[in-house]
């Protein structure tokens, strides 16, 4: 049994302590926006925020999370699909198949929290997610546009 705080709500989950956060989120809580793809912490499809930082949830056992830690999944990023990153992504039609995009968006959102105006090199270092359709150019433009939206007082 673990007690977690996910998207602002405290939840008790009855799982083996070694279960990765990804599978708790997907299978216990039904929040399937966070994706499985590699399971070894490389591709970033499973990216969520823990206390504001982007983490790979597929290799993070729930036992390593302390009770008060704030976990944010794509479903909790905004109430109305209007986080600056989501606004920018909609404006530029970023997703193709879309499977990696929740992770991509969570990585981008965490970067912007930490760095309001990331340079291209900051994006290169922070967004290491894999996308096989090939959305990278629009992802990059999307992050710059989201920074602008945020600066101009867009919802967050």
């Amino acid at each position: 049994m673990a007690t977690l705080k996910i998207n602002g709500e405290r939840v008790d989950v009855d799982v083996d302590a070694s279960t990765p956060l990804l599978w708790v989120v997907r299978e216990q809580l039904g929040l399937t926006g966070t994706k499985y793809s590699c399971g070894i912490g490389i591709c970033g499809s499973c990216t969520v925020h823990v206390d504001g930082a982007a983490v790979r949830s597929c290799t993070l056992p729930v036992s390593e999370l302390a009770e008060g830690q704030e976990i944010l999944t794509i479903e909790g990023l905004s109430a109305n699909n209007d986080h600056p990153v989501q606004q920018a992504w909609a404006e530029l039609d970023v997703p193709q198949c879309g499977y990696c995009q929740p992770g991509m968006i969570m990585a981008a959102a965490a970067l912007l929290t930490e760095n309001a105006e990331p340079a291209d090199t900051d994006i290169d270092a922070a967004v290491t997610n894999i996308c096989r359709c090939g959305t990278f150019n629009r992802v990059r433009r999307g992050i710059h546009l989201a920074a602008e939206i945020k600066k101009n007082g867009g919802a967050s």
Binding site: R26, L31, T32, G33, T34, K35, Y36, T73, I74, E75, L77, S78, N81, Q86, W89, A90, D93, V94, P95, G98, Y99, Q101, P102, I105
Partner: peptide
């Protein structure tokens, strides 16, 4: 696009 931004888009795995 929109459902692909907030986790609503259901894939087979979901």
């Amino acid at each position: 696009t929109l459902d692909k931004l907030n986790g609503k888009q259901i894939f087979g795995a979901d």
